[in-house]
Design a protein around this nucleic acid. Structure first.
Length: 455
RNA sequence: GGAGAGGUGGCAGAGUGGUCGAAUGCGGCGGUCUUGAAAACCGUUGACUCGAAAGGGUCCGGGGGUUCGAAUCCCUCCCUCUCCGCCA
């Protein structure tokens, strides 16, 4: 990326010539490159839990060659710097420095000769490292599919109806609150139009969630851009691998609609060294989210479970490394409390290694009960990324104990997805007349309304 | 959209081709003095990276160029500020 002063590149200059690496737009290493070099076998084993096989020989061969070329280049640079000083001193003393100047010509020629090869190797290695996902935490269960996820706890009982419960699409139709036909006309499939009391309920949910997180859980409310550049997406891990999931703007600059508030909010800390007293930094942020849902054809085509545009209240934390595992439990709890206050039954599952997102070391999914589908559906995903995103972001802190700048840990989770929460309320709180009881905590946000009826 | 100014260490702000990773001030840290504190004085204080260490390399908004040598000169992009116009 050439249009921004800042960058989440892999350090001001990892090594000689590295600033020429064509991945300057940000791309950093996800895994600690030192550990990758030193403990390749162990890394390969841990990535194997994600059903990923890495080519160790490919890497080792290039890494050895890279090191050799780099050491050589640095020696030449050292000579150049030394000679440069000698020339300066000699000239000011009125001596003849043409001999040294000739030597400089030879040094520069040698440097130039090795340059191309070194650059190519660095680019190759870097691009390869970019495709490596985070290592699963040891507490993450083995497994490859959703079926291997482990249920941690269950809260509440699925409601029993003495009538066949309707799905939210039908309830939405009867209350005239949800209209999929209108939005299909004005935009296309996977959009919804909300109206009247249901639209207000949706807005009430967002206000309620924000209020709880801000006043009871200690998060700071933020408002952020809904359009971000490619650097931001690279830093949080959506790019370069998952561009197909995003909506890209057709402007000259590489702009994208945000797929989640995680992207702009986490990037608040890009290229920043936090003071100890600023930590933990906790943010609650409501944004729309835009996802292309490429590759999900035929999945959840009906209703508002899987939309191109939906609203979400996101929780983001940047914490000291030693605090991140405790923070994951807390953050998950904060999301759960919203469901508890809404009296919606749910369960929490730990994603197995194979089901884990690219940047996450561990993820808890919160799944709400949906009577219309007679099963639990994901309504929140809470993850600890440890230092994976922070390394790309260069989000660090000054550790007073060591006196050094060290990487932070980042976490985030939905608290919650508003659209799916709305679905859960419509389905769980319906009566035999397809009316919907407004959860008590939301009534103040609804002007005291207790029941949503047809207009 | 038009015109102008500018981007240097945590902040302010020097430096316009050579021994500059960068004066100075503030802030931070350590010390002297003090019952304690303030003031004063002395010292110290950027980030990244390779290395077991010694030590090396890179970074003055990003990228490219000129040169034996660039914070300093040239090109280009990004960003910020001021004025005018437009707009919510």
């Amino acid at each position: 990326m050439s249009h921004s002063a800042s960058s989440c590149a892999w350090g001001p200059a990892t090594s000689v010539l590295s600033w020429r690496v064509p991945f300057d737009r940000g791309a950093s290493l996800m895994l600690n490159p030192k550990i990758l070099r030193a403990e390749l076998d162990e890394i390969a084993r841990q990535l194997g839990r994600r059903a990923l096989t890495i080519d160790r020989d490919w890497f080792t061969i290039r890494e050895q060659k890279r090191k050799q070329l780099q050491t050589n280049a640095e020696q030449l640079q050292n000579q150049r710097n030394t000679n440069s000083k000698l020339i300066a001193q000699g000239k000011s003393a009125g001596q003849d420095v043409s001999g040294i100047m000739d030597e400089m010509g030879a040094i520069n020629a040698k440097l130039k000769a090795g340059e191309g090869e070194l650059e190519r190797l660095q680019s190759e290695i870097h691009a390869w490292m970019l495709t490596l996902p985070n290592l699963p935490h040891e507490s993450v269960p083995d497994g490859n599919t959703e079926a291997d996820n482990a249920v941690v706890r269950t809260w509440g009982e699925p409601p029993e109806f003495d009538f066949p419960p309707l799905g939210h699409v039908e309830i939405g139709k009867r209350t005239e609150g949800l209209d999929f036909g209108k939005s299909a006309k004005i935009a296309g499939s996977r959009f919804v139009t909300m109206q009247g009391q249901v639209a207000r309920l949706h807005r009430a949910l967002i206000q309620f969630m924000l209020d709880v997180h801000v006043s009871e859980h200690g998060y700071r409310e933020v408002y952020v851009p809904y359009i971000v550049n490619d650097e931001s997406l690279t830093c949080t891990g959506q790019l370069p691998k998952f561009e197909a999931d995003l909506f890209k703007l057709s402007t000259d600059s590489p702009y994208y609609l945000i797929p989640t508030a995680e992207v702009p909010v986490t990037n608040l800390w890009r290229d920043t060294i936090a003071k100890e007293e600023e930590l933990p930094a906790k943010y609650a942020c409501h944004t729309p989210c835009f996802r292309s849902e490429a590759g999900s054809y035929g999945k959840d085509t009906r209703g508002m479970i899987r939309q191109h545009q939906f609203e979400k209240v996101e929780l983001v934390q940047l914490v000291k490394p030693e605090a991140s595992w405790r923070a994951l439990e807390e953050l998950t709890q904060h999301a759960e409390i919203i469901l508890q206050k809404l009296e919606l039954p749910y369960r929490v599952v730990t994603l197995c290694a194979g089901d884990l997102g690219f940047a996450a070391a561990k993820t808890y999914d919160i799944e709400v009960w949906l009577p219309g589908e007679n099963r639990y559906r994901e309504i929140s995903s809470c993850s600890n990324f440890v230092d994976f995103q922070a390394r790309r972001l260069k989000a660090r802190w000054k550790n007073p104990a060591t006196g050094k700048t060290e990487l932070l840990h980042t976490l985030n989770g939905s608290g919650l997805a508003a659209g799916r929460t709305l679905v859960a309320i419509l389905e769980n709180c319906q009566d035999s007349e397809a009316r919907v009881r407004v959860p008590e905590v939301l009534q103040p946000y609804m002007g005291g309304l207790e029941i949503i009826t047809s207009p």
